[in-house]
Design a protein around this nucleic acid. Structure first.
Lengths: 256, 256
DNA sequence: ACAAAAGTGTTTAATTTACACCCATGT
DNA sequence: ACATGGGTGTAAATTAAACACTTTTGT
């Protein structure tokens, strides 16, 4: 259980982690943001968020905690999910990144050392929306999904962090099959393609995409089909992580 | 000028930067390591480095300094070079990363807070050996190049950091033309190919490499040739950064 | 003359691209 | 019946891979 505000012990006031949690609703790529409130957990969630009242989920690290653990803890506290894809992508440390007036005012209410310079280590995380249960966590009423195409103004340098996370996920998407982390275990090839199109911001030709991705040989075609759709039901596939990892082979190709 | 040891002010004892500085001598990829000595600068450089006496160049950040600035400062102090390729690739923060006995003993002699947990933000840097002048800096006699194929045991978690830097440079080498940062302004295609072969640890076919890299259209062929080589002199080329950046176009391709 | 690396082309296979129609399902 | 997305194949162009001999230079 979390102790909050100035009361928390074993907390390193100089280093934090922030998580850019992505979710895909088959239409858009979304980021989970929290509405910050005085007192961290308690507070009235009914008031409209003021300008800059939204932020990435994050926390200071504990003194005896690895960075990845801290990231996983933040994710767990917010979503109640374990074993979620989570990858560090950049550290942000501008000397004034937590020093603007609005942010400082808020920090004074919740931080032991509100004037300290804070370096943050940023992670991006991929969550299947069907796993995210807003009831599961005490933070839930403070968190909401925002489409990446329309992120509001955020606290600190969090808009920058979201942008960098997007760049990181786009880069990685083509080099590692991370897209599956955003889809349910069984999915259609069109859903997969739309995921790629959404993240890359680019249309992909249906037949060619299908051929390419199936050639990779880590997609297991199921006998199952979609149901309840007002058109021909699509075959469902499963991602075979084992197969991917065993077939994994270094490949070098100039892409510049 | 650097103030050292416990006397340094404005220094953040919780966060450091470390630089993995790569250099290419046309044979091997090398890393610049420093021999750590009590008192940081002063000390006898004639004694043999003891086990674990080598480390990556690094320093704590200053309170008013950006992370990238801190990295550039470390590089500058060690090599007297400005405007060098330098890229952050990972933050390391294991709670015990600076807590082993040998390391702690040494830290007590030079650090204001030897017991503090230190998160380090790691950079890799690419330096042309012809620019590195060992006379230029007061650290020079403490620094030496080591081939990446034979890195000795290093302080802290620096062996891990070097490994991760190598992975990062290999990944980036095929996606961005960073290799040129390791070569003199004028180079032959064989030198360029050997650079790629060395970093990737893999032979590349001469004619195909030549065709591929020339098609990229950012190599300017010069009228000049090599001299003093006991074989047919090769044509020299220059990398045209402007041209690269203008031709720069997003390209998506599955490489998994 | 010899050793050593430079420079050059072609053939074959694999991959990429562009493109259009019928099918199955729910309303 | 109609609207919606599912599913399929081919031809042409491009790119990748494999491969060997002649040239130039210093010793």
């Amino acid at each position: 259980m979390l102790e909050y505000g100035n009361l928390r012990k074993n907390l390193n006031p100089h280093v934090s982690v922030d998580c850019v949690i992505f979710g895909f609703d088959f239409q858009e790529l979304n980021v989970l943001l929290i509405e910050r409130e005085e007192g961290y957990i308690e507070g009235n969630s009914s008031s409209k968020p003021a300008r800059g009242a939204l932020a990435l989920p994050g926390d200071h690290i504990h003194e005896d905690e690895k960075l990845d653990q801290a990231g996983a803890r933040v994710l767990k506290e917010l979503t109640n999910l374990d074993n979620i894809f989570l990858e560090q992508f950049h550290a942000f440390g501008h000397p004034n990144r937590v020093k603007n007036e609005a942010d400082r005012k808020w920090m004074k209410t919740i931080r032991a050392e509100p004037n300290a310079r804070v370096i943050t280590v940023a992670y991006y995380s991929l969550v299947r929306l069907d796993r995210y249960n807003p009831q599961a966590s005490s933070f839930a009423k403070h968190a909401a999904w925002f489409p990446v195409s329309d992120i509001p103004e955020l606290a600190f340098d969090h808009n920058l962090i979201v942008m960098r996370a997007l760049e990181a996920i786009r880069r990685t998407l083509m080099n590692q099959p991370i897209g599956f982390e955003l889809l349910p275990p069984k999915f259609t090839l069109s859903q997969l393609r739309r995921l790629y199109e959404t993240i890359l911001g680019k249309e992909l030709e249906k037949r060619n995409f299908r051929r390419k991705i199936l050639k990779k040989d880590f997609l297991i075609p199921l006998e199952e089909k979609q149901t309840g759709v007002p058109h021909k039901a699509a075959r469902l596939f499963q991602f075979d992580k084992e197969k991917y990892e065993s077939h994994q082979t270094e490949k070098y190709d100039f892409t510049f």
